[in-house]
Nucleic acid binder design. Structure first.
Lengths: 415, 415
DNA sequence: GACGTTTGTCGGCGAAGATGACAAACTAGG
DNA sequence: CCTAGTTTGTCATCTTCGCCGACAAACGTC
């Protein structure tokens, strides 16, 4: 540093990026492919209207995508309106796929997702809690991937690999910092899985709640919403934030750990080392304990509790009411911080919400600023347990959608 | 709606925007102007290096900006290195300005800020708390603006008008939803000020804490940081969030109301109607009360308290310690939610922090996840009370910086 | 003062979208 | 069944804008 003059130092930091003319083509190809991926098949004339480009430009662009086998054009079904029918362009789902992986607490899912977001094949395997060593996990994933790959079209290309993990994931290097439920600590998961799969495609890793949020925004209940708070809770509580349509990742990708917001500073100790974290009040354990059950009862115990609630058993109703209060308190705080237009509840919280809707809403009304909650909708997750898988695929497709031909070239080169 | 066929309905929603060739020029002009605005004067060759464009392209682009009188080229001072010296391009600050307004609790500031971010002229007037009616405020602003305008170059153009207000501001229509400290409720402030100033330029309004955060990120301690949590506290507590370099506004612009996160559900009632909001624990009133003073003591009482602390008076130290604990608790929660790389403390909190640094940091260490706080820095605001003004100017410049020539055309047309 | 280096300038080139004319493919009405 | 009207794909030509390469200008060094 000392030998570099200040003027030179400024040189070394290319802050802004100019637009060259080749960027234009790439951007427009990306625009069209994204349009088809997110909003489904569209006729050329629809693409003209949505993009603002001319018929000739759209024609050339779609043609290029067709030549690259990313898009296929079909004869339009005449819809009754006058004029020459416009051929419909659709993403080629079965020859352009992403491999999506979801490493959950006690199960593991792998999906092959086609361009456009269709799950072509998927397989979820339950795993005994003991078998969560990193190597064993990677072996399991590779085995399932190979099995699914055999069912694919030989001409099928894998455009990306995305993984969701229950734990804190460092997005800068695709490593898992801590996954308490798996017992992992500082694992270079992305790199290791990539080596095990023997591929040159980067394996992108993210937190599973973040991916579930992404999935709900792209293809679930929150489709079209630009500012969303996704709250996912089972044993632990995680969250995904979306602001202005983009996921909020934070500096290193750890944003969204809303389960550890202090809501009750003199409450119970949390496994994270703090006290009174939100998840100590609304996690599965707290709910079960309040209903007089063992906090480790798991899914069966929750089922029993909800069955009790259906029958009107007072203790069960009481436990749900307390849960609801804390749920509302936490959501209200996050509404004030983020001013979302929609709150999506997933996992256990999604199951509980219908029972305690009134109470949760009341707490939100009391504690969230009137302006911030105006127009707000609280809904239950639509994609359920598939959400992280769908989100992982979206993450994996990101690169192709940003630069279709460039990414394709890179993939074919590295074969 | 009923007469519109589904196919037509799809037409009416232009979701994606294509890039036309004229967009390229506009984007590149914007890139250069932003570079000069944010990072100061730069030689052409520096611009070449940073943008990745060629010498000829930069030459034409800078030339166009010079012709538009947005940029001026000066002979380079030869810096000792061999080769032909490159002329230095600089933003023309004194003929391209934004008018920035800060409507604070008991004062009102107006600034004329030149392109590049220099405050050319500014005036802050203290206002008795009684005189906060909307019309009176607008009259005051107009008077100061006219006074400052007389000192400007006759050729000077006003490129934007930005206003920061202590209160909840709806960014979609530049209206103030609620400003408890001013007694305002649903005021179309932007539109009314625009009419009073008799201008066709849109008056952009935002929350003052959001603007202070923007200012710190663009020109203060957080320059270069991409994920920042700004916490501003006096009587109330507000905040500004920046994620991936962009301000987080939320659905309607109300994001960042971190003063009303519930941290102590069984605590004191808050003026917002809730109980145990963060600001009831770390606001000025709570601090003064804990030190045995009247909560309404204001700035003088705070000065006295800090003087006591300097002398080691136990009651003062105790009050600060309690404040520090709650400050740390709240910050820790927000760190878990947002994973910022920097936390900036402004206002009273910035004054208090040096006294209680250890305690606040300890609480953060205890309650924020290790991963999320790794590499985190907590600092005190650099711009002080000027921050909202600087931020308002940045907001006002946004439009010109996004499309220089287009905006200029629009402004000159509307004369 | 000659030489090497860096940079501005200018003419020509190529990529990509716009324009406009024309043909193709559909509906509606007689 | 045929014609008019409408919408859309295609193609040749034009325009914009950045790139490339050659050359000249302005600096430091020996």
């Amino acid at each position: 540093m000392s030998t570099v003059s200040p003027a030179r130092a400024a040189f070394s930091s290319p802050t802004a990026t100019g637009v060259r003319s080749e960027t234009v083509r790439s951007a427009n190809l990306a625009t069209i492919l994204r349009e088809l991926h997110f909003h489904g098949p569209a006729s050329r004339s629809e693409l003209v209207a949505r993009s603002g480009l001319t018929r000739s430009a759209i024609g050339a662009l779609v043609g290029e995508l067709v030549k690259a086998d990313l898009v296929i054009e079909q004869r339009a079904a005449s819809d009754g309106s006058p004029g020459r029918p416009s051929p419909v362009a659709a993403p080629v789902a079965d020859r352009n796929v992403a491999i999506a992986v979801d490493v959950a607490v006690d199960s593991l899912a792998v999906g092959v997702v086609g361009l456009g977001g269709v799950i072509l094949h998927s397989e979820r395997i339950d795993r005994p809690r003991e078998r969560v060593a990193v190597d064993a996990t990677i072996d399991d994933i590779v085995a399932v991937v190979r099995r699914l790959q055999r069912r694919l079209d030989p001409a099928c290309r894998v455009l990306g690999i995305g993984v969701g993990v229950v734990g804190l994931v460092n997005r800068t290097d695709n490593s898992v910092s801590i996954a308490p439920n798996l017992g992992w600590h500082d694992v270079a998961f992305g790199a290791r899985l990539q080596r095990a799969l023997d591929t040159t495609i980067e394996v992108v890793v993210s937190n599973d709640a973040d991916l579930a949020a992404l999935a709900e925004v792209r293809r679930g209940v929150a489709a079209g919403q630009r500012d969303v708070l996704y709250v996912w809770g089972e044993v632990g509580v995680g969250g995904g934030l979306v602001s202005a349509g983009e996921p909020v990742t934070g500096a290193a990708g750890f944003a969204g750990e809303i389960g550890h917001v202090p809501v009750n500073p003199d409450g119970r100790p949390c496994r994270c080392g703090s006290v009174g974290c939100w998840e100590t009040e609304i996690g599965e354990g707290a709910l079960l304990e309040r209903s007089g059950r063992s906090p480790d009862g798991g899914r069966d115990a929750v089922d029993a509790l909800l069955a009790d609630a259906d029958r009107g058993v007072p203790l069960a109703l009481e436990a749900l009411a307390v849960q609801a209060r804390w749920l509302g308190i936490g959501i209200a705080g996050l509404i004030n911080v983020l001013n979302p237009s929609m709150v999506v509840l997933g996992g256990l919280l999604g199951r509980v919400y219908p029972y305690v809707r009134v109470r949760v809403d009341a707490e939100i009304e009391r504690r969230a600023l009137e302006s911030s909650r105006r127009g707000l909708v609280v809904v239950v997750s639509a994609l359920g347990s598939d959400a992280p898988l769908v989100g992982a695929a979206e993450l994996a497709f990101e690169q192709v959608l940003a630069d279709p031909l460039g990414t394709l070239r890179k993939i074919s080169m590295s074969r």
